[in-house]
Amino acid sequence: MGRRRIHVYHALFDSLPVDEAATRAAVEKRLEEVRRYRQVGWIRKEAFITAGYEPRLHGATHVVSQPTERLAIGNVDKEAELIRKSELLDLAMERLSEEQREVIRRSYLDQKAEYDFISCGEMGISDRTYRRIKASAIRLLAAALKLEVYQEEPHTSKHGVG
């Protein structure tokens, strides 16, 4: 990534009222969700109680409860959502530089969790450079995945009293 592109991204992010901590937390949550899905897959929920087939004469007979159907639909929808999130992350990762992809992969997506100081030693870069690359990659992923969290401006009344 050239210097000019870096300055354009920093100017863009500095001009927006983005809550850096909340945005980082949202991106890290998404990365953790995708990492778990890729390693384990989706663990489907199962019904704990099977409906009885005896007529119930004590209540409203027109009410239909379909917990198993709702559970099955929820399982299919959740798995489709996780597949879509994984594919979107792959597309967003393609937009990062090679160093940024490597840092994100090592920090969040690998099966074995490594400390940052070990990863930066293996990559041959300083801890400060590693953290700078990681922060810029997270900002770019937040924009690509539309996970930015904006700061709310304080509301003031007409009379200037908060």
Rank of each mutant, 00 (worst) to 15 (best):
S15N: 13
R35C: 01
V63Y: 08
R132P: 03
S136G: 00
R84M: 13
A21C: 03
G124A: 12
Y108R: 05
T129C: 13
S119R: 00
V76A: 13
M123Y: 03
S126R: 11
E94H: 15
E79W: 00
E87G: 03
S107K: 06
E94W: 14
V149P: 07
P55D: 01
R4G: 09
E102Q: 15
H62P: 00
Q39R: 11
I118R: 09
A80V: 07
D116A: 07
E81T: 06
I138W: 00
S126M: 11
E20I: 12
R5Q: 14
A80S: 12
T23A: 05
L71G: 02
M1W: 09
Q151H: 13
L109K: 09
V18Y: 08
E98A: 15
P55T: 02
Y150R: 14
L147H: 12
I118D: 08
L96T: 10
V27W: 05
L96M: 10
G41K: 06
F13H: 11
Y9L: 15
H58V: 02
D127A: 14
A22S: 10
R101Q: 14
R4L: 11
E114H: 10
E152M: 15
L91I: 14
A92V: 05
I104F: 04
R36W: 05
R56T: 02
E79G: 03
K146P: 08
E114R: 12
D14K: 15
M123W: 02
E46Q: 11
E81F: 12
A21F: 05
E87D: 10
E54D: 01
R131D: 09
G121M: 07
T61D: 01
A144H: 10
C120F: 04
K134M: 00
I73N: 07
Y115T: 09
Y130P: 02
R139Q: 04
D116V: 00
V76D: 05
I6D: 14
T61W: 05
P17W: 08
V8L: 15
E87I: 07
F13Y: 14
G59H: 03
V103W: 03
E153S: 13
E99M: 10
S86R: 11
I6Q: 15
L109Q: 04
I125T: 09
S126F: 13
A144G: 10
D77F: 08
E46L: 11
T156A: 15
R4M: 11
A72C: 02
G74M: 06
G2Q: 11
G162P: 12
S65N: 13
V149C: 12
F117R: 07
A92K: 07
Q151G: 12
R84A: 14
